[in-house]
Amino acid sequence: MLIINCPYCGERDESEFHYGGEAGITRPGHPDKLSDKEWGNYLFMRKNTKGLFSELWFHSAGCRKWFIVDRDTVTNEIVSIKEISKKI
């Protein structure tokens, strides 16, 4: 069980949170202008990093805010946690 330090509520058990996967994937502004390749990349292709990985978490049973966690996917060590700025 991870202990996650929500930027808004402090340390809580992982069970209070919901996992959101890779951070920093922005929905393209004009999907109709994309090629199939670009659209497929956006929808499906993932970094799936082995090592330090930037990911989204949602405090679903708490403040219900999203934030970013940098976690090592091999050791589970959480290196940093930050709020989502307007542009990610």
Binding site: S15, G21, R71, T73
Partner: peptide, 13 residues
């Protein structure tokens, strides 16, 4: 387990 992981060890829940 819900999170991305390369650990051959999971969550007790």
């Amino acid at each position: 387990d819900s999170i991305n992981s390369y650990q051959q060890k999971g969550n007790f829940s």
